[in-house]
């Protein structure tokens, strides 16, 4: 049962990303949206967490939320995939369940 974990809170403020990462098993994926996108960026104090998780997880980030916050795709950690809203929908249908970490 592969699960898609969405994270919409900043990892600097809330523990949502940590929650998602620690529960993401068996082919699960993480999708960072809204303020969650700050977790997908290179060169921050929490980049290491995502970089490490990429060995076992697929990680996605929502492009329009990056752009709104002044972040470009080349600031995203290598290995993290940028998706648009259609890609978001595809992920939701591709995985068996969605768990939203608020």
């Amino acid at each position: 049962m592969a699960m898609l974990h969405t994270v919409n809170k900043s990892p600097f403020e809330k523990r949502s990303l940590d929650g998602a990462l620690s529960h993401a098993v068996n082919g699960a994926a993480i999708l960072m949206i809204e303020d969650g996108i700050y977790g997908a960026l290179k060169g921050t104090a929490i980049s290491g967490k995502i970089e490490k998780s990429l060995a076992t997880l697929k990680v996605y980030v929502l492009g329009p939320d990056l752009k709104a916050r002044g972040m470009t795709e080349d600031q995203v950690i290598d290995g993290v995939t940028v998706v648009d809203y259609a890609g978001f929908v595809d992920l939701v249908t591709e995985y068996d369940k969605v768990q939203a970490w608020l």
Binding site: S10, F12, E13, Y38, G63, D65, K67, A68, R69, G70
Partner: peptide, 17 residues
């Protein structure tokens, strides 16, 4: 300070959201 520094990040374009 804290996440407030993101308020004044250059290059914001919120049309998509």
């Amino acid at each position: 300070m804290d996440d407030g520094v993101y308020q004044i990040k250059k290059g914001q374009d919120s049309k998509g959201i």
